[in-house]
């Protein structure tokens, strides 16, 4: 599935958050969005997923959806957004209950999602009984249960410690290796973007405008190889050069506000 964003602007009252965004997320690619704090990254994702109404501009999806897809554009949230009163398996069931699925298929989707994320043994646990990484795995399993065509990931690793982040990045890589699900990935972490994305969009400070789109040539599964490091370091420097000054200015603006 492709996502096409045309001439997108968004404002909260007098505050212009996004301005003149034209962007296409290509079929099967992982597009990372980076930018300084407050540049509208999460707002862009919310608009792309239809949970924030844009002030102007259009958002369209096009292309094929996988068999059995129940929610073509699906979020994975930074704070996991799990219902604390439901067990792990019931959190997955929540997103299937309003679809007219046979009970056996519902069970099969839940089991497949939980087994894929290594959570089957924890299916009866409540979210409070899980670590941060496991909670995010529940969030991923929940997203996979609806067989999405596109994932919208809102800083999915930022609430986690470094080791858990590394493990979950491996999970994402395995997922994209297998499924080729299109993804729009918002992050403030350059290393995450360099490890996971095919292209990286750099937004300016508020109002967020598209500054540059940087393509990462190395295949994702080879980015930890020594041979890829020189090029990745070059791309990293370029990205950092693009956002450094913007981030400093954004910090000053926030402090003055």
């Amino acid at each position: 599935m492709r996502l096409i964003i045309k001439d997108l602007c968004h404002r909260y009252d007098d505050l212009v958050v996004l301005e003149g965004i034209d962007l296409t997320v290509r079929e099967g690619e992982v597009l990372a969005v980076i930018g300084p704090s407050g540049c509208g990254k999460s707002t862009l994702l919310g608009i792309a997923g239809g949970i924030v109404a844009p002030t102007s501009g259009t958002i369209e999806t096009a292309g094929a959806v996988p068999d059995g897809c129940l929610n073509p554009v699906t979020f994975i949230f930074q704070d996991f957004a799990l219902l604390p009163w439901r067990s792990v398996e019931d959190n997955l069931a929540l997103v299937l209950e309003h679809h007219p699925l046979p009970a056996a298929e519902r069970r099969e989707r839940i089991e497949a999602g939980l087994r894929r994320m290594g959570l089957w043994d924890f299916r009866k646990a409540l979210p409070k009984q899980l670590s941060g990484g496991m909670r995010q795995r529940v969030g991923i399993a929940r997203a996979l249960a609806v067989r999405p065509a596109m994932l919208l990931l809102d800083e999915p690793l930022s609430a986690l410690d470094a080791q858990t982040r590394e493990l979950l990045m491996e999970d994402f890589l395995a997922l994209w290796q297998r499924e080729r699900t299109t993804a729009l990935y918002v992050t403030h972490n350059l290393d995450e973007a360099l490890r996971l994305a095919d292209r990286v969009v750099v937004l300016s400070r508020r109002p967020g405008r598209l500054r540059e789109i940087v393509t990462i040539e190395e295949p994702r599964d080879q980015r930890l190889q020594p041979s890829a490091q020189a090029h990745l370091a070059e791309v990293r420097d370029r990205l950092w050069h693009l956002i450094r000054a913007e981030a400093q200015l954004a910090d000053r603006e926030i402090a003055n506000a």
Partner: peptide, 15 residues
């Protein structure tokens, strides 16, 4: 965020 999550998965209003 829980309500937004539910909306993003297309849960009906009553649900």
């Amino acid at each position: 965020n829980l309500i937004r999550m539910a909306q993003s998965f297309g849960l009906p209003w009553a649900s």
